[in-house]
Amino acid sequence: MGLEFYEELKALVGQEGSRLVAVDEVCKPMIRHWCEAMQDGNPLYTDEEYARKSKYGSIIAPPTMLLTWTMPPLWPPREQPPHPFEQFLEKLDKAGFYGILITNVAQKYHRPLFPGDHITFTYKVTDVSPEKKTSLGNGHFVTTTFIFTNQKGETVGTQSLTVLKYRIGP
């Protein structure tokens, strides 16, 4: 793929889609299910009495759960206008970069999340690399950044995810 293709990709960087609303509000059952799966016994997440006496005054969600609140429902499909990120992936698929693999994850936590909080979020592609040779095949690294906001309009955290979109096979 030539320089022209990379320029086309770069033109899509920074385009933000519409704000999306989390399907579920932050809630104790989903927190407890997470703690079961992660084998995390932190009492701030599941011990009512401990959490009430803590500086938070209440149960909080594990901060690493950030992205979980915003995952799309399995059914029915979320009705939303197409996001620029999807165009990005489509463009790479059409050019033969079908493979996808998450390579980097970064989360920043600005505020604790409490049961009852309702998250909205936006995301956009913030970086794309030129075509690079990797052990899986040639590909582009694409970084997407999410900003999560609570019902008061406060930023609760951010996450960036880098995926490698690569050409499978020789």
């Binding site: 799966a37 995390d40 690493t64 759960m65 998450i102 994850v105």
Partner: peptide, 18 residues
């Protein structure tokens, strides 16, 4: 990747305490 995030969180706060 989310489970790795969860394991990182658990590993760090199991060390520091709550």
């Amino acid at each position: 990747n989310a489970t790795i995030c969860g394991f990182v969180g658990k590993y760090l706060t199991d060390w520091t305490g709550p």
